[in-house]
Design a binder for these strands. Structure first.
Length: 308
DNA sequence: TGCCAGGCCAAAT
DNA sequence: ATTTGGCATGGC
């Protein structure tokens, strides 16, 4: 009933947290800047967050639930120390306070079905469209809750496409039906080994290895998992030196070189690269014709969604 | 305008 | 077992 603005605000100390960087790092897609803070929701609970230095102000959510969601128990100093690669060291210092959250299982699973061949800003758009069309309105925030599996299962593929999903509509609908029917239980994944959990996720339509790894990392706390996308593939490729590595090889290489918290380290590298602060190799081998002046590779530009 | 984006999937080597 | 082409959409 009561939105975040009407419930008692609370304040906690959150020393190693950069809230803005965390909410903008391409793991969750619905938090919106408002009044010097952030408005959004955790599951079906409307939440407002505002950080001033080490103080984290929160409304609408209990402190335990908030700490769990933001993973304030992760020891970032220990994670930074777990990998001594020079480039990683620089990125980890530049990403102080960027945490890997524990998102609600279904919401994370569903939104990453939206992610193939989409930029972060576009995933946000699709997530918002689904929330507005099929989600539950929440008082206290303009962002509705992410629709339940049942709500999406009751939609048609055309209705989902109308939210801008394109070919992703089919996978989302198919997966929503499997979850709504109980044939697939996102909660049951929690108790499986990472390998078993990945296999189970990959059995769902629209979920391949990379998306499964994102879900394992961002919803199930499997911090050793490395989702290899275009950015991480380029970075790991440059670390590795040799040319022509398959995605599987890059993933194994990343798990080995980035250490026991490779998923965390990967996120710092991803954010660093996406904000243009990590020197990336050119997408294609440069043709060294001095005559052809080319514009800088787009991978080094800074998307507005990150800086703004 | 053309290129690219936190890929997946089925068909063809 | 690995590589290839098709698939929708939107921003720069």
């Amino acid at each position: 009933m009561s939105g975040p603005s009407r419930s008692n605000p609370g304040v906690i100390q959150a020393p190693e947290l950069n809230l803005a960087m965390t909410l903008n790092s391409g793991q969750a897609f619905h938090w919106t800047a408002l009044d010097d803070g952030w408005t959004g929701c955790i599951g079906d609970t409307a939440v407002f967050l505002r950080q001033k230095g080490d103080r984290l102000e929160y409304r609408g959510v209990g402190v335990m639930e908030l700490q769990h969601y933001l993973a304030l128990d992760h020891d970032l100093e220990a994670i930074r120390a777990s990998c001594d690669h020079p480039v990683v060291r620089e990125a980890s210092l530049g990403c102080r306070g960027l945490r890997i959250m524990r998102q609600p299982h279904w919401e994370c699973l569903a939104t990453f079905i939206l992610s193939p061949m989409k930029q972060v800003a576009h995933i946000r758009q699709m997530s918002l469209a689904l929330r507005e069309r099929f989600g539950t309105p929440l008082s206290g925030t303009p962002i509705p809750a992410f629709p339940s599996a049942s709500a999406l299962a009751a939609a048609t593929e055309e209705e989902l496409r109308a939210c801008g999903l394109g070919f992703r509509a089919k996978g989302l609908l198919g997966t929503a039906r499997l979850v709504a029917s109980g044939e697939f239980d996102p909660e049951a994944i929690e108790n499986l080994s990472t390998e078993e959990a990945r296999d189970a996720l990959c059995s769902l339509p629209g979920i391949g290895r990379k998306v499964a790894n994102c879900i394992l990392l961002f919803a199930y706390g499997r911090l050793e998992v490395v989702p290899v996308d275009v950015w991480i593939g380029r970075i790991l490729g440059s670390f590795r030196g040799r040319r022509k590595a398959s995605p599987a090889e890059l993933e194994r290489y990343g798990e080995r070189v980035l250490g026991p918290f490779a998923g965390y380290v990967q996120q710092w590298l991803f954010h660093r690269a996406r904000t243009g602060l990590l020197d990336l190799p050119a997408k294609r081998p440069l043709k060294v014709k001095a005559t052809a002046r080319r514009s800088p590779p787009s991978c080094r530009r800074i998307p507005r969604s990150v800086t703004g």
